[in-house]
């Protein structure tokens, strides 16, 4: 047992380094993906049919394509089309697209949950369509969607573990290379699992709390 703890102590710094990369990947994907998702959510209820269909098609591709396919596509596929990205950038690009697809559906649900009477009242007050979206619909829709967005953020954090397949040096990749060097896969993978849990479980609790708080106030 002490042997295991000693090894864990030795490995921890490298794994934490990997964890930082995982968190950075998550943050970058959410920062790019959620605004894109919001744009897609707004466009998918556009009054122009061509715009609406294009947005819906993008969303369905983003959600329908497994994250791992998206990653391999960007990293191994795009270079043949003349676009070579570093592993980290490929990972951010792919995960952002996935994020955009999923969050646009989440946000669309939130936007639709804003009572039609409020949009109508804004119109009756002479507010423009754009102002109505900006001041009335989007702020409330995002708030309604917040717990689901947080839940999705946890999933995308977990999905960063897939980027090891395109040789991003994140948590799982660090654990795997330690395992390959020491042949103690189980020991190091358990520690990696615990580190993932150290993020996902508190984040899950926070999500639940947010959900309860918001449902009380709206």
């Amino acid at each position: 047992m002490t042997g295991l703890l000693t090894s864990w102590g030795e490995w921890l710094p490298r794994l934490l380094e990997g964890l930082v990369t995982s968190v950075e990947l998550t943050a970058a994907s959410l920062l790019l993906g959620i605004p894109l998702g919001l744009v897609l959510a707004l466009l998918s209820s556009s009054r122009t049919r061509a715009v609406r269909w294009a947005a819906i098609a993008l969303v369905e591709i983003g959600r329908g394509t497994p994250a791992l396919v998206m990653l391999q596509f960007v990293y191994y596929g795009l270079p043949s089309a003349g676009l070579s990205l570093t592993a980290f950038v490929s990972a951010v690009a792919a995960l952002s697209l996935t994020t955009a697809g999923y969050t646009s559906e989440i946000l669309r649900g939130g936007l639709q949950a804003v009572p039609a009477g409020e949009t109508e009242a804004a119109g009756a007050l002479g507010m423009s369509h754009r102002d109505t979206l900006r001041f009335v619909v989007v702020p409330q829709g995002v708030r309604i969607a917040l717990p689901s967005l947080m839940g999705f953020a946890i999933l995308i954090f977990q999905a960063t573990s897939l980027t090891f397949t395109i040789s991003v040096v994140e948590l799982l990749s660090q654990a795997y290379s330690i395992g390959a060097a020491t042949f103690r896969y189980l020991d190091v993978l358990v520690l990696a699992g615990l580190l993932y849990l150290a993020v996902t479980i508190p984040a899950g609790l926070l999500t639940n709390r947010t959900e309860r708080r918001l449902s009380r106030h709206l």
Binding site: Q158, L172, G179, Y185, L186, V190, G193, L197, I201
Partner: peptide, 20 residues
């Protein structure tokens, strides 16, 4: 079960348990 990424579970089972 839900808090650990699926691919980590696969590695735990395939490389971790499977090897030893």
């Amino acid at each position: 079960v839900r808090g650990i990424p699926p691919v980590v579970w696969l590695f735990l089972i395939f490389f971790g348990l499977g090897r030893d």
